[in-house]
Amino acid sequence: MPDVIYVAHDGSERRVDVPAGRSVMLGAIQNGVRGIEAECGGCLACATCHVYVDPAWLDRLPPAGEDEEDMLENTAAERRPNSRLSCQITVEADLDGLRVAMPETQG
């Protein structure tokens, strides 16, 4: 299974096996990775699964859709060029080693 590396705001890292087809958000929630709240469970309703994608990986992800863009404008932490909602990133085999960092706050 592909590994996703979650970098906490304090810099500590967690490497998690996430089954292909599962979202980066679910990979975090189901394994108790802190710093992603995902209050709506991935329905694109809350913007509390905000992450900063490692710039080296950014271009390898499909771009954010219109609703995600709309929500990224309203995240609790600062929006950066590499901001994404982790519920919208599907883990695939070619994303093995994907690194995402959690912001200081989700709400």
Partner: peptide, 15 residues
């Protein structure tokens, strides 16, 4: 169904 769990099975024991 495999996408539905709120937490992974190991999470509860960990906590």
């Amino acid at each position: 169904e495999d996408a539905l769990p709120l937490r992974a099975p190991g999470f509860y024991a960990e906590q």
